[in-house]
Design a protein around this nucleic acid. Sequence first.
DNA 1: GTCTATAGATTGATAGAC
DNA 2: GTCTATCAATCTATAGAC
Lengths: 212, 212
Amino acid sequence: MTERNTKGRILDAAERLFARDGFHATSLRNITREASVNLAAVNYHFGSKEALISEVISRRMVPINRMRMGRLRAVMAESVNQQARPDVSEILSVFFRPTLVFLETSSQAKEFVTIIGRAMPEPDDTVRNILIGHLEPVFRYLLEILCFALPHVPYRVLYWRLQFALGAFSHVMRTARDPIFMPDDLKPEEDIGSIIDVLIPFLTAGMEEAVE
Amino acid sequence: MTERNTKGRILDAAERLFARDGFHATSLRNITREASVNLAAVNYHFGSKEALISEVISRRMVPINRMRMGRLRAVMAESVNQQARPDVSEILSVFFRPTLVFLETSSQAKEFVTIIGRAMPEPDDTVRNILIGHLEPVFRYLLEILCFALPHVPYRVLYWRLQFALGAFSHVMRTARDPIFMPDDLKPEEDIGSIIDVLIPFLTAGMEEAVE
DNA sequence: GTCTATAGATTGATAGAC
DNA sequence: GTCTATCAATCTATAGAC
């Protein structure tokens, strides 16, 4: 299912290597070798390594976040209609599940899950800001809806709880395929969806916990 | 409170710069300039950049983890004595609070909190394994005690929940001083202890949540 | 122990032929 | 659009004088 054209081949190879080795440790030479294209092709098609990183992130993040925003709006609208508080577990599902939407259609896209987890803690500001720019509107809307869902929890506490959720999520997305500290009598999960099934009740309980 | 000798000056400067810019983006030239020592001093005193990274991490992690293990054993012993299950909130406190132990004594050590959060998601295996090597025995013992505390939660679920806790913790340690997505009407916490005060009830609720 | 000078390797980017 | 060849900058690490 590899892309035929050079640009697509570069994007796929970059996605694979960024996921495996990180952004900084992956050189343009590694990428073009993996993609079987010429070194100069990256700068011809993308302009710079940074622009390539941006493209690798954007081509998946844009549709994922469009899906997230649409579903969050639906959850909010339904809540207003029924004059009921939105369900925290559903809010979190709507945020996390779209990450997996590509996994059924493309084996290549599995790499991307790791990339999200890599970009979040990236020390390089320019790289991290690419992800942050995509996530910021979603985060704000998510926080707003959580305020409706959990009016008894202070705003400041909800902000930090949402940060905890983000941290837990990015950590397991990054390490899911090669989990650290895994005891010998446990096996890595075969698919990431089953980790999210454990994650959502965990986070929901934490979100809903009363503040004394 | 800066160290007088060259070795200590290098360690402090490296800690500061690793925290701010990450391990990979910080060159030995940056470090020696910041420490006002000669470039060759790093290889004279430490042998290599990797060995310096290891030292920066170890000099704080060793005493922190010794404290953690001691307190965890105490929690476990008290539980056996009283024939009661250990308290989840206390277990988590015993793990998280020692991170802050240096903060009262040394302003320099504030940087280290960020470093833990940086080393955990580090793509470079050799760097990440330095931290993992320190944390592994603590993680295993922590998981064991959680099994005692929460016998109704399956082992596999507890493993992942502890991973979520680790992810949330490292994420906020890394971003606490410059939080992402911070709304205009919120201010960064003045000290990290107050974030941990929010974190522990959140994680405790998630840990204790019943599994259907 | 501290310094200068430099080796040796790798990187992102580009000029210019085809 | 694709290629070769190369520039200029960076890095870690080390040899050798003091």
